[in-house]
Amino acid sequence: MAVLEIRDLTHYFGGLCALSHLDITLEPGTLTGLIGPNGAGKTTVFNLVSGFYRPSRGEIRFAGRNIAGLKPHQVTALGVARTFQNIRLWKDLTVLDNIRIAQHHRLGYGFADAVLRTRRFRRREAEIDAYARELLEVLELGHVAGELPKNLPYGLQRKVELARALSVEPKLLLLDEPAAGLNTADVEELIRHIRWIRDRFDVTIWMIEHHMDVVMELCSHITVIDFGETIASGTPEEIRTNPAVIQAYLGDDEI
């Protein structure tokens, strides 16, 4: 079964049509790209999928279930995690706390347990802590566990945000411009990193990206939108040679 199936997704902001008739199917384990010029509605798509907006029309099926209209935390609890275009870590909580808090949907205890320090609370807190530390070690972030994100360099903040998204234990990972602000060397590393994450965590990845080399290198399928309309969809090779795409997005020159 497809991880994500989007049918006829349409969204209006007031009278402005931000997205119209989007159709996408993501198969398990694939890496898919969503590209388009600035203001094309890419982030709107992610905001719709993660429950931040309620779609004006259309269906979003995650693992067969229609998630349109669910609250963001409910969508996340089902297994959809995301990162943000501009990093949105909790900058004054330690990296470890950032990872711990993203496990809120499977805490398994409530207010009374926290105050009374019940057996269940102590067991779950130990598990949450162990999980967070392990995840950081696996992602080679163990050395920054006690740091505050605001004190970390930009590239590390991006990695921590990715770690936080992974601690949700997602089946679908939405990456909003993961390469934004990275230099060429970092981009190379990011490409390896994303592929490794897909295999290691067995997760389906859907990414918005402006770096063409990242998208062309990583994605097996790419959707191009412009002014909310889908103008092309296919393999990197097809997109590269599609005249509509070249005109709308890549300019008149060949790439």
């Binding site: 909580l93 706390d97 808090i101 809120h104 805490l107 205890y109 207010f111 949450i128």
Partner: peptide, 23 residues
């Protein structure tokens, strides 16, 4: 508690908190 730290997550970035599974 990790539960209560959700409150601090709301303080620092409410949107991120909601999207990272904090109710």
């Amino acid at each position: 508690s990790t539960y209560g730290k959700g409150v601090m997550a709301i303080c620092q970035d409410e949107v991120a908190a909601e999207i990272m599974s904090v109710n």
